[in-house]
Structures are given as structure tokens and as C-alpha cells.
Computed example of a mutant assay.
Amino acid sequence: MVFTTRAGGASSSPYESFNLGDHVGDDAGTVAANRDRLAGVLGLDPGEIVWMEQVHSNNVAVVDGPQAGPVETTDALVTTRRGLALAVLVADCVPVLLADHTHGVIAAAHAGRMGARNGIIPRTVAKMVELGATPGSIQVLLGPAASGRNYEVPAEMAADVEKHLPGSRTRTEQGTPGIDVRAGLVRQLMGLGVTAIEADPRCTIEDTDFFSHRREGTTGRQAGLVWLP
């Protein structure tokens, strides 16, 4: 499991420099070069990395080999194929990497506010279980994302997310309504019987090592990747 930052790539402003998103307006050739560089650093074949056309849904797709392009209209990927890397792109949403090494099942999920609210993680865990995983054997890593202290939303939205993702409503540092998607996901995962959970506490809104849509508007995307060696 690995998460990237925005450093070390070839993209120019406002995508500088290690932008891995091919849907944000950056030069396609530069994004491809960044993705090739990522694969090389990780010792992977670029063709063995599977990307998603993320749409803030709760759709989960199972993949068993390389894809010609991004898997369409999905926000989580699951596989049992060794050597196949699953990638999730983010710029404030929570990248969630899941692995059951005992039973050989992995997943990568894009848990933005809407996807998390609508159950992307329970659906991902359920699909992993269908393929042989057990909740008690699943390890989860939540990556850098918007933190509750900076993720301000209208009070009605905070209440709605809390209703569907208990434990996510919070107050920002300014005392305004906010949500902490990571906190809600940790509570949700534990309720599913997944207890081996680690969360990177860094906030993409305040940490300029990361791309942040909330901070910058037009910007790049960092990635989380998971694979079975």
C-alpha cells in the first residue's frame, strides 16, 4: 500500500508536479509520463495498474486483469489477481486501501462525502467477502484527506451525512458545522468487523504537500495504490 504526494512529477501549474489525474485538464502526455514514473518507482508494469472513472457513487467493480482504460463509473475496485495494482485518485476525498493477505483479496475505494454517505465502503467489504476475504483478516489504510477541523459544510449537510455515516459530524476549528469522513469510516469499518485500521492524519486542505480541490479549485490528483505481490 502506498500514497503519493504532489512532488516529483513533470506537470506544470496548477498541476505541479506529480499529477496522476487524467481528467482535470492537465496535458495527457505529461500525466502518462507521471504514471509511468510511478510504476517504475514501485517496480510495476504501467499496464498492470488499474484506474477508475470515479463518479462519487457506491459502485464496486471486480477486475481480474489489465484494463484498456479506466473502469467506468465506479468508485471501488476489488481483485484477487496477484501483481495487479488498484489505484484511487483523490484531492480531499478519502482514499481507502484494503487488503486481506491471508485470503488474497484487495480493494481500493474512493470515499468522498457522497460515496461514503451512500455506503461505498460496506459494499466494498461485502464484495471482498464474496471473493473469500474475512472481515477480521482485512487490513485498512485510510490516506490523507480533508480533516474535520477544516472541512466546513452547511449544518443540514453535516446532519445528513451523520445520519448515514455516524461519527462523521464535527465542528471545524472556526466552530462551524463540519464533517470528518475518516472518523465516520473508522467507526463504520469497526461495525463491519474490520478492526486492523490505520489512518494517515494529514489534512489535504492545509498540507501543501498534497493537491486539494477545496484549497485550490483547479488542481491535480494524488493516488493510493494497493497490490498483491
Score class of each variant (00 low, 15 high):
Arg6Ile: 09
Ser13Cys: 00
Ser17Pro: 01
Leu20Lys: 04
Asn34Ser: 12
Arg35Ala: 15
Asp36Phe: 01
Leu38Cys: 11
Met52Pro: 07
Glu53Arg: 12
Ala68Gly: 15
Gly69Trp: 09
Gly69Asn: 04
Gly69Val: 02
Thr74Glu: 08
Arg82Glu: 15
Gly83Ala: 11
Cys93Leu: 04
Pro95Asn: 04
Val96Ser: 03
His101Ser: 13
His101Gly: 06
Ala107Tyr: 07
Ala111Lys: 01
Met114His: 08
Ala116Cys: 07
Gly132Lys: 07
Ala133Cys: 13
Ser137Pro: 00
Ser137Asn: 15
Gln139Asn: 06
Leu141Thr: 13
Leu142Asn: 05
Pro144Trp: 05
Ala146Cys: 07
Asn150Lys: 06
Glu152His: 05
Glu162Phe: 02
His164Pro: 00
Pro166Gln: 08
Gly167Val: 11
Thr172Met: 03
Thr172Cys: 07
Glu173Trp: 08
Ile179Asp: 08
Asp180Phe: 14
Arg182Asp: 02
Arg187Gly: 02
Arg187Ala: 15
Gln188Phe: 08
Leu189Lys: 05
Leu189Ser: 06
Met190Tyr: 04
Gly191Arg: 09
Thr195Ser: 12
Ile197Phe: 13
Pro201Gly: 06
Arg202Phe: 02
Glu206Pro: 00
Thr208Gly: 01
Thr208Glu: 09
Arg215Tyr: 05
Arg221Trp: 07
Arg221Met: 12
Leu225Tyr: 07
